[in-house]
Structures are given as structure tokens and as C-alpha cells.
Design a protein around this nucleic acid. Sequence first.
DNA 1: GGATAAGTTGACGTTTACGTAAACGTTGAC
DNA 2: GTCAACGTTTACGTAAACGTCAACTTATCC
Lengths: 160, 160
Amino acid sequence: MLADLRRPERTFTIRQLCNEFKATPRALRFYEDKGLLTPAREGLNRVYSHKDRVRLQLILRGKRVGLSLSEIRELLDLYDENDDGAAQMARSLKKFRERATALEQQREDIDGALIELRDACARLEKRLAEIRPDLLPRAADYDQVLRARLDGHQDAALGK
Amino acid sequence: MLADLRRPERTFTIRQLCNEFKATPRALRFYEDKGLLTPAREGLNRVYSHKDRVRLQLILRGKRVGLSLSEIRELLDLYDENDDGAAQMARSLKKFRERATALEQQREDIDGALIELRDACARLEKRLAEIRPDLLPRAADYDQVLRARLDGHQDAALGK
DNA sequence: GGATAAGTTGACGTTTACGTAAACGTTGAC
DNA sequence: GTCAACGTTTACGTAAACGTCAACTTATCC
């Protein structure tokens, strides 16, 4: 009768949530500071409910798509005011669409930068081929970069 | 005989370069602090040579492709040591290639975020269409975003 | 009765690329 | 003579999202 970890009354410690979502205690406390989470207390210790867990999921999802914590907070607040349930959905939708167009813009900027880069690379390669072909960094060097990229940090673009 | 602004002896004031490249004096002085520029002095005033101008161009180009100032500095230092002329080109090339793959990674991250976003949007749109179709934000709202994006800030992605 | 583990609350440190005064000097126009 | 326009230095402020101590309490294991 103490079993069934899925029942809604189940609570979580800070570390349980951290392990589940690969976050740090510091981060969760930080989100709390910022008003994104408000777990209950048991003495001093934080006690996270299912609702808190859901909010954390939303927070992390928001981060993945590049929303700032304050933007995420606004959205979460909407869900709390539940001033209808539909009005907040409409505003969330709007926010998401804005973020989408912003990301599209970022992609274009990146594409522009890539064009400049490839252009510069092409020039350098050409000159080097003429002068010192032996110095041309080739596939071998590249593998190192790719391998380095495979472990550790896949946090390049958005919230690190 | 005082004419011909193109002759290499020509020098520039800080503001001339700022106007030409849409930078601020503060920025140029900052680059100097960081060792990216070392203009001559005429009394207190900075006097930029053609070489300085080229360096500034390289700095800004580096920024556009997302290099940090310290990375840019490394590259510029290479050109100064001119320990051959070819070796530095090889290293620049390597750096550029690394940056290119990093940018490609960023693009993938953005694409991933866009997928999540579009998914969330689709859900919201569906639910809203069922419940309160009148609240669906549509093309009209979108125009505002686009118009807002057209003036002022095209600084979304990289160095702002 | 420690040692260990996990929790807590401050509070300062980090990073990047400048912005923003403050306070002052120089030059040219009127 | 004085006001504007441009230049200078020094130095603190900013934003985001935590990391990293420090110093302490509480619970548990042996």
C-alpha cells in the first residue's frame, strides 16, 4: 500500500527530479527563486508534487526551444491564472509562433555566416594549395573535431 | 596634393571608422583593450592606419561568423607573428572549418527546437479550433511580428 | 559518537561585449 | 567668451543561468 509510485499523491525529492531530468539542485532552486517552481516544504526540505514535476517538464521544454526563463514564467503564470483555459492557450500559441519565426531568422543568420565562412575557407584552401599543399588540414584533422563533438557537449545552440 | 584619400599613408579617426563600419567608439576602444587593435597616437587621440582598418574589417567579419573576440585575437596574432605566412593560413583555415561545423550543429539544434515548437503549435491550434476557434491567432497578428522585425534589429542570431 | 550523505540558505564568481555615466581636454564657429 | 562637437580615461553596470564555495542542520549507518 506504500507502493504504486505512479499515484498522484506521490512526491519527489529534489534529487529524484534532478536525476530524472538531468538537472542540478542548484538549477531547481534557481527556478524557485525566479518563481517558476514553488514546491512544498517538509521542515526545510523541498517536496515536489506531480504538479511541480509537470511544471519542471514545461520549463525544460521551454528551454530546449530557446525561451528565456522569464518568458517561461509568463507562460506558466497563464496556466495558473486559468482565466478561461482557452485564452492562455491562445497566448501560448502566439508566443510559440513568435519563437518559431525568431528561430527561423537565426537559421538564416547562420546560413549567411556559413556562406561567408565557406567562401573564406575556399580562398584559403586555394592559396594554400598553391603555396604549401602539404599544410592543408584534411579529413584526418576533421575526425578529431567530430569525435570531440560526439561526447560531452551537445549544447551548442540554445540554452547551454 | 592633400587629396587622394586612397593612398596608403592616409589615416583615420575613430569616428571615421565607426561611421564606415557602423561600430561605436566604445567598441573600438574595447577591441584595443583586448589587444585586437593598436592604433597610433597623436597626443591623446587615436590614429588608425590602413593596417588598423584592415584589422577592424577582419574583426567584424569574425564577429559576423560567430567567433569570439578572443578567438579573433588568436587569428590576428597569427598574422602578426607571420611565422611563414602559410602556417597561419593553415591554422585560420582549421579554425574556420571548426566554426563551420559548430554552426551546422547549431542549425540542427534549431531545427530540433523548431520541430518541437511546430508540434506544440499544432496541438494548441487543434484544441483551440475545437473549443474557441475565434481565439485562433491568425495572419493579422503575424504581420505585426514581421513588420516589427523589418526595422531596427536584424541582430537575432549571432553577435548582437 | 563520529562519519557520511543529502538537504538547506546566502552570497559572490563567471562569461561576453560592450553601454553608460563622470569628469575633463581640445578645437573651431560664432 | 562660450557653446557645441569630438576626443580622452576610469570605472561601474548589464543580462542569463546557473557554478561554486562556505557554513550549518538533519537523518542515517555502524
